[in-house]
Amino acid sequence: MKKGRTILDKERFSLTIERLCHQLIERYDNFEDTCLVGIQTSGVVMTNRILTGLQKILNIKNIQSGNLDITFYRDDFRIREKPLQASKTSINFDLENKKVILVDDVLYTGRTIQAAMSALQDHGRPSQVEMLTLVDRRFNRHLPIRADYVGITVDSIDEAYVQVEWAEEKGVDKVLLFGSKREK
């Protein structure tokens, strides 16, 4: 039995995504030399959602996007108990001198983003990297990393667990907060 508390329901979820799209448009105008890069696996779903939103608002189709898998770049690879299984990286364009917006669903310790930034380097030298996240757990950072665009901010104790559920995978969009990972 799930004990999670819904902190973002379906309606507010879609409003939040829409707001993030508008924030991006405010900064990037028509997305020239700009691309979205989603971090496997949930970041990719989020990227597609943002892309759809942007295309609807701007009525343009050619915003570049890619998927980035960071498994091979993780710093905890040999100390984890269970090995991670890699997913696919597909960035079919050069990142050299591009403005990159990294997309993930939850920003927690910052280690994923650190790994993602070293992974990005292997695809060229972007002129600028920004970060967009749906949920920012700002009190649990291990590294000096912050997001530029934030859906919601969750201030919670370290044990708490935030789960983002996507309509593509779970049927309905929502964000849940659990007391601990075991409760999930």
Partner: peptide, 22 residues
């Protein structure tokens, strides 16, 4: 399955990942 991912890596301009640095 894992080789599939590494095949993508070795076809990049920068064909290197830091996994086994230690």
């Amino acid at each position: 399955e894992t080789a599939e991912n590494f095949k993508e890596v070795i076809n990049r301009p920068i064909k290197k990942v830091p996994s086994l640095r230690d």
